[in-house]
Design a binder for these strands. Structure first.
Length: 224
DNA sequence: AAGCTAAGCAACCGCCGCTAT
DNA sequence: GATAGCGGCGGTTGCTTAGCT
């Protein structure tokens, strides 16, 4: 009779992060169950993978989505629906989880704004033609439809607004045309195919990219 | 200052598909 | 070909923080 090891759950500690990064560096980011075992972390392989993919991976960008990233998310979502990982692959440095959260929060906010506007004009305008994805979101009907379809409508409405805002604002953020975005996507796809390299291909620089807080107190002698 | 609400984000769950045996 | 194990994905939950009354 094998005794089931009790797995830790909940937020990761800095120590766990360090340990995970070290073992990912050592063995790569594929065999998560194996990694979970050899690292001594009392976590499931899945949990380790999630932590790495969504937080520890040095290729990740942090902070607010840029306007061009926002537009890209809208555009790609209108094309692919809730295929978050697929969308994430086209937006370097962003994870599916991040994009999903972004969509959920920011789009809901904008849906509310739009709804306010639309109810003041015509109660039955917009939010009507659900087209993509098998979303099981159980909010009220307007919201569900918004998640599925409103991206493009927003793109159009927001595009004009942002363009004028950016002219006025002090920071002159470049607004990408869709042509430019698609060119970007295509070249990214080409690169992906050409290189077809695993994520860990860039991991030799891991130590350079990892947040200082992760490394500054690390006792390397214990690993020699 | 305290309480409440909404937003943001990290993490978990369950399902599905791929792969090794 | 069957099946078990694992990784990946999308959906959901729950905790923390910020903003408002």
């Amino acid at each position: 009779m094998v005794q089931e090891e009790i797995k830790r759950r909940g937020p990761w500690t800095e120590e766990e992060d360090l340990q995970l990064v070290f073992y990912v560096k050592l063995f790569g980011d594929r065999r998560w169950d194996f990694l979970a075992k050899v690292s001594g972390l009392k976590r499931t392989g899945k949990s380790c993978r999630l932590r790495w993919v969504n937080y520890l991976n040095p290729d990740l960008k942090r902070g607010k989505m840029t306007p061009q990233e926002e537009r890209l998310v809208l555009e790609l979502h209108s094309k692919w629906g809730n295929r978050w990982s697929r969308i994430a692959r086209k937006i370097p440095g962003r994870t599916d989880n991040e994009i999903k959260n972004y969509w959920r929060n920011h789009m809901r906010k904008k849906a509310q704004e739009l709804r306010k506007k639309s109810t003041s004009i015509s109660p039955s305008s917009s939010f009507s033609n659900s087209s993509s994805s098998s979303s099981s979101i159980t909010h009220d009907e307007n919201e569900t439809n918004f998640y599925d379809t409103v991206g493009l409508e927003l793109l159009q409405a927001e595009g004009e607004k942002k363009a004028s805002n950016q002219e006025q604002g002090g920071e002159s953020m470049k607004v990408y045309s869709m042509d430019e975005i698609w060119k970007d996507i295509e070249s990214l796809e080409e690169n992906e195919e050409k290189m077809n390299k695993p994520i860990m291909g860039s991991i030799s620089t891991l130590w350079d990219y990892c947040p200082d807080s992760l490394w500054k107190d690390f006792d390397w002698s214990s690993f020699r």
